[in-house]
Design a binder for these strands. Structure first.
Lengths: 141, 141
DNA sequence: CGATATTGTTATATGCAACAACAATCGCTA
DNA sequence: TAGCGATTGTTGTTGCATATAACAATATCG
């Protein structure tokens, strides 16, 4: 093989993210969800009445791109909007959304475990902290 | 913050890949290159007369999607095609392509070093092998 | 030879993200 | 309190990456 690209962490990062992301997408599709949907569901549980803009900032999605996402989830009966003031609206899970959230969490945690199982034991504990260092407080750099 | 998503390696993987990929894209754009272009240039150096299909398999890009990629690079004078037989054509760097390859490699290696510098020292050496385990021989799973 | 696989290509669809603009509204301050 | 700057939700548009289906030409192998 002798792949010169496999020596670059950045390239491996991209390939690994593409490969694993595609696999997760297949499983989430069985629940009728996309990755972004699942992220929203998980965040929403612990952030009652969060705003679409704030949610976008948390997930690093521009608020313009939140519109179709939230519209779809609202039409699917997963989330619900409630006016906070004349400008902002708070988001919340519906009962159906809570069920979807539980299914999504179970799906994701199972997948994450399989993911970690693929990593040789001596590297396993280092993966998450190393990855987090690459993007956490990235706006500060 | 208490972000429940940051506990999932898969999610951190996606975020890290997006963040770092965007940064690399900015730098490569200064050279008039995209990430896929740079990958092609680096592979081509050590794989004389590789086929478009084989190159696509190496980079995990469908051969249908190689067409516009290679067309653009050929029109940019970076690569050159040569008939191997009536069906296949071998790819090679032009002189201009070799210069672009050197610039791309310098750019990427500098970037990779900065990337690793962000990772705490005790995790640094584990990043690449852990990532490679996530996608290497992924078709076999 | 003849069936089968491969190659390069066209066309098309989808998901995701970026950018610019805009009206409405909020919050602070002079 | 009147006004100005910042924020919110939204629309529209663009570009990039990727996936699928189809097709003609050609290679490979039984």
């Amino acid at each position: 093989m002798d792949d010169p690209l496999a020596r670059y962490p950045g390239y491996s990062l991209r390939r690994a993210a593409n490969a694993t992301g595609a696999q997760l997408s297949v499983r989430l599709a069985d629940l009728g969800l996309r990755q972004a949907d699942a992220s929203v569901l998980l965040i929403l549980e612990n952030s009652p009445d969060i705003t679409a803009s704030a949610l976008g900032r948390r997930l690093d999605i521009q608020r313009a791109n939140m519109v179709p996402l939230l519209k779809r989830m609202e039409e699917g009966g997963l989330i619900q909007r409630r006016a906070i003031d004349g400008k902002s609206q708070g988001l919340a899970l519906t009962a159906k959304g809570r069920k979807a959230r539980n299914a999504a969490q179970e799906c994701i945690e199972g997948f994450e475990n399989e993911l970690l199982a693929r990593v040789p034991a001596q590297h396993r504990a280092h993966l998450l902290p190393a990855l987090n260092a690459l993007w956490h407080d990235d706006g500060a750099s």
